[in-house]
Amino acid sequence: MNKGEGRPGPPERPMPYARPGWRRWATDLVLAALLASAVAFQAVAIASTWGGGYWWFDAAAGSVVGVIALVRRRGRAVAAAAGTVVAAASALTARALDLPAEPGPAMALAVAVLIASAVRALPARSACAVAAGGLAVIGVSLLTELGSFSGMPVVALNSLAWLGGVACGLGPRLLEARRRRTAERVRRDERLELARELHDVVAHHITGIVVQAQAGQLDAHGRPGHEEVRDSFTAIEAEGSEALAAMRRVVGLLRETDGASLTAPGPERLAGLVGRFGERGGPAAVLRMSEDERTWPPEVAGTVYRVVQESLTNIARHAAQAEAVTVDVTREGEDITVEVTDDSPGQPRRLRQGGYGLVGMRERVEALGGALSAGPRAGGGWSVVAVLPLGGRRRR
């Protein structure tokens, strides 16, 4: 929406979506039920074979690791480390006190959940460290049961649990990595296609405009009023050359592998932008800017430039009666405030629908965590105000 299309309406409300918290609660409830069942089953089995009093250690150790597994999302690496340490310590303690072999079924299930959660979500090194920790628990269990055939089923159970945890964590991780690679390949192909179109079509036409403007300067030489005509052609050539340079920067950006390059000019070019506005026949424009603009982050500097550029374009299109334009760029704490005002008399005109100038400005500003407002001033004219955080609170 461009200036003069009326006051911007309220922002659209996001569509409702299913919150993943319900699934997490359901998963944890099922896991808690399974862990409780495993603890009860193992306690009954130990009491029936070893006699009363031997089941408490397995139940207590299994419950501790089970609780850790249920709160794993608060810190996956810490939870996995704590669970494996408790599991290894329980195996050594059971051996020293001549108790049933550990880790038991409940603890093996809890450790598998911790390993799967960590392998799926943590960085590669941390995930490998957690998997190695689970393997170390199996090694400790195996060493404590050497020479004892009755403890081998426990070692086998823990080995299967470890393999299951690694598989359940690694499978989704690989699928997600594959989806990311596919999405990135599609985005790159789209960027390259757009870059080719811009280079072969748009840049070609802009080059033609520049060449025609240069030829017009030669043709106008010696004719009546040739100074004014030559000045017009010179301005057209300068604008076309700048547009062509900007197009080439955009093409370079699109061809970047990560798309991270910034093409927007920095604040040092604001003075030239405002100065050219008056030279092209627009109202007199004044720029007031703080002295520390060179310390701005590149994304903030580029957004400031684009906001001023679009605001001046809107003034040239929709405020022909304006006599003065003021561009204020100030810093207040950790925020940059950009205000572009004009003194165009009368009410703002309602123009055609479908413009994207104000929409684009708002998207740029809000993408950095800022806010933008635009509308008629109380004393007449129009005002565009954008507030940008220097801290780069970019929305995700």
Rank of each mutant, 00 (worst) to 15 (best):
E228W: 00
D231F: 06
L157W: 12
A374V: 10
P376H: 08
P267L: 15
A378K: 10
L31A: 12
G282D: 07
G252V: 00
V338I: 09
S141L: 07
A320K: 14
F41S: 10
P103R: 00
T326I: 14
E228R: 05
A81W: 15
R223V: 01
Q321N: 12
E310R: 15
L390F: 13
A47I: 02
G392D: 06
G302L: 09
R377L: 10
A124M: 12
T257P: 09
A124W: 09
G165P: 01
R294E: 13
A26N: 01
A79Y: 02
V202T: 11
T295R: 10
G252H: 05
A91Y: 04
A26Q: 03
S241M: 10
G66P: 02
Q353S: 13
I336E: 07
A110S: 02
R249Y: 01
N158S: 03
I236A: 12
Y17L: 07
E193I: 05
K3P: 07
T84F: 11
Y17N: 12
E366Y: 02
G62K: 00
R196M: 08
A167N: 07
D200T: 11
G272E: 09
E5Y: 11
V119Q: 10
A238V: 07
Q309G: 09
M152T: 15
A32F: 06
E293Q: 15
A80E: 04
G370A: 04
D200L: 07
H204C: 05
R331Y: 11
R125S: 11
G381P: 01
G275D: 15
A26H: 00
A116Q: 09
T27I: 12
W56T: 02
P376F: 07
W162F: 06
A320R: 13
R306L: 15
G381H: 06
S48D: 10
G346M: 03
L244P: 01
P345W: 02
G360W: 08
R223I: 01
A33W: 00
A36Y: 03
R173Q: 01
A45R: 09
E227P: 00
G4C: 06
D219F: 05
R76M: 07
R180I: 01
R196N: 09
A47H: 09
A121Q: 15
G165I: 02
M107W: 00
R223L: 04
E102R: 11
G369C: 06
L114Y: 06
R180N: 07
A32K: 01
R349H: 12
D219M: 08
E102W: 03
D231H: 01
G66L: 03
V325H: 14
T84R: 04
A243T: 08
F233A: 04
E242T: 13
P20N: 02
A118D: 08
R396L: 14
R294V: 13
Y305I: 00
I315T: 14
A177K: 05
E323W: 04
G75V: 13
A131H: 00
V65G: 03
D335N: 15
R13M: 03
G391W: 03
R223G: 09
W296L: 15
